[in-house]
Computed example of a mutant assay.
Amino acid sequence: MSRGGGGQLSLGQSWAIGVGGMIGGGIFSTLGVVIAVAGQWAWASFLIGGLIAMATGHCMSSLTVAGDKAGGIYRFLRDAGFARVAKLSAWVLILGYTLTCAVYAATFGSYLANALGGPHWLPGAMAAAAIILLALVNLRGAGEAAGLELAIVVGKLVILVGLAAMGLARFDAASLAVADPPGWFGAVVGAASVFMAYEGFELLAYDYDEMADRKRQIRRVMPLTIGTAIAVYIAVALAVPMLTGTAAIVADGEVALAKAGQAALGEPGLLVVTLAAALSTGSAINATLFSTARLAREVAVEDELPQAFARQNRAGAPYFGVMVIAAAALALAVIGGLAALVTGASVVFLLVFGTVNLLSWRKSRAHPAIAAFGTIGAFAATLLLLAHLAGFA
């Protein structure tokens, strides 16, 4: 049943949730991966992935407005008559988001430990502290969680844009070169390999009922969030090699941006980029906890998940979902060893987005050319990524 549009989330707060969900651990941990695959075409990898994400955002917002309900792909599949597949998709997404939250927390701990030094248990302790703190923020309700998200997102974007500006001021195309250039096809493989960097905008479909003037807002906020991510990713991919060189980025792995900040400004640069990483991964944890708990609530209301997930506290927060997801993510973050699962997450989200685009295309809810591009692009990228993982591409 359709509900009124008097939610708590403003356009700015919704934008912050979407951007926070995307620009989380992604750009901090995947830049070395995409350069290793795509070489000087790394910026094009982020552009290709972004265009697929933009098409998916258009299809997702169109389907959400047509049904006028929160729930994302779960809702779309259920309304299309695929109840069993819808239930399975909800479980898979919740597990995937829990894993993603753990990865963000682990990245948070790695950056802080790199800057501070300390005992071997420090990264795990920092990761656990981040999850616990942000779970407590989420338990205070939508206004508190979204307000914190807006402040964090603005802060991290200022730092990332500043780092990009320093690199671009020294721009020299020769600095993008790698020892064994892969050719333009590497950009396509790179886009598939790091597509998880664009996971996050779909969280807004779970928060639809929380938005003010929701039908208008979700159509506006989807392209705004994805466009922001595309611009930041391309700028960073072009700028950071100017500061450290491509070989160093690949070698430094998930702390490559911290090393770039150190190369640009010395110790202050290391600390500033570490702050950006902490803000970025923290906002991603916050956004993912916020939206995943609301997805679980929507599914539980329809008896497809245990009823405990539908329970809310006085602030309107789905407290059981927040606590269970946070506890599972904390355990995964402390255990570590998630690299292979992170790669698999790109496959999961490409399949999810491809399915959304296909549903929109079949139901004529979005512009047919955009839906066709999103469908073909997502499924082709999935096949390409699987071929790459198998060593064929």
Results as ranks from 00 to 15, higher is better:
G6V: 06
W15T: 04
A16R: 01
I23Y: 08
G25C: 10
F28L: 09
F28G: 03
F28C: 04
T30R: 07
A44N: 09
M54I: 12
S62H: 06
V65K: 12
A66Y: 09
G72M: 02
D79L: 08
G81R: 01
V85P: 02
V85W: 08
W91K: 04
Y97Q: 12
T98R: 05
A105T: 13
A106S: 11
S110Y: 14
G117P: 05
W121I: 15
I131W: 00
L136D: 04
L136R: 04
E144R: 12
A145W: 00
E149D: 13
V158R: 15
V158C: 12
G162V: 11
L163A: 08
A165H: 09
F171Q: 07
L176N: 09
W184Y: 13
W184A: 14
F185T: 15
V188F: 05
E199W: 01
Y206T: 04
D209E: 13
D213Y: 05
R220W: 06
T225K: 07
A239D: 12
A247H: 11
A251N: 07
A256C: 08
K259Y: 12
A260I: 08
L270A: 07
S283F: 04
S283K: 03
F290D: 02
T292F: 01
T292W: 02
V301K: 13
L305N: 00
A308N: 05
R311T: 01
R311V: 00
G316T: 04
M323N: 10
A326M: 05
A331N: 08
V334C: 05
G336K: 05
V342K: 05
T343G: 09
A345I: 09
F349D: 04
V356P: 00
L358E: 04
S360A: 12
S360R: 08
W361T: 08
W361L: 15
S364D: 15
R365M: 14
I370Q: 11
I370H: 04
F373P: 15
G374E: 09
A380T: 10
A381P: 00
L384Y: 03
L389T: 14
